[in-house]
């Protein structure tokens, strides 16, 4: 039996033939498929013009790995775990990317409404913030900040990082 596939198009026009089951991990694509009934049409292309080729490739790799996962979504904020949950070794390796790529994945996952990937990436960003000084947070996430000059001239960027924390 042939598995049904659809074509997803990235912002650069690259087409990804994808199993319907994998694509349905995204609520946005699922709604599209239900609304327009394109899964029976082999030539139908779903345009995702705000998602780059690299990011779409990463997201589809994640979706393919997690396609058989049970949907464990919990309604309401009461059950939301604050503590970062244990990230699986596969996910940890998958998200070994720089902060720019990670934020791109968050934006794409938000647009495509992939709840599992969003929760995972939020936890990874929270882990990156953990134990860091405000200056380090600004540095890692490219947050512009006018560094005020110190008493003896201009404070260099690296001086902010080499000052020890209170241990």
């Amino acid at each position: 039996m042939v598995t049904p596939t659809i074509k997803l198009e990235s912002s650069e026009g690259v087409i990804f033939p994808t199993e319907v089951r994998v694509a349905m991990v995204s609520e946005t694509i699922k709604t599209m498929l239900d609304h327009f009934a394109v899964q029976n049409d082999e030539n139908a292309i779903v345009p995702l013009h705000s998602v780059s080729t690299f990011t779409l490739g990463k997201i589809l790799a994640w979706a393919n790995h997690h396609k058989d996962d049970d949907d464990q979504s919990t309604e309401g904020e009461e059950l939301k775990p604050r503590r970062p949950y244990a990230i699986s070794p596969w996910d940890a390796i998958f998200l070994m990317v720089n902060s720019t790529t990670l934020l791109e994945i968050i934006l794409a996952a938000k647009q495509l409404q992939i709840k599992g990937l969003l929760e995972l990436t939020y936890n990874v960003v929270a882990n990156m913030i953990r134990g860091k000084t405000p200056e380090e947070i600004r540095f890692i996430f490219n947050i512009p900040e006018d560094v005020s000059p110190s008493v003896d001239g201009e404070l260099r960027w690296k001086d902010l990082f080499l000052w020890p924390m209170d241990f």
Partner: peptide, 22 residues
């Protein structure tokens, strides 16, 4: 380099904050 953290939607940043436990 784009995107930057301060370019994320506010609700995304809020969710990230909710994962911080310290």
């Amino acid at each position: 380099a784009k995107p930057k953290l301060h370019e994320l939607p506010e609700e995304c940043v809020r969710e990230i904050i909710l994962c911080i436990a310290d």
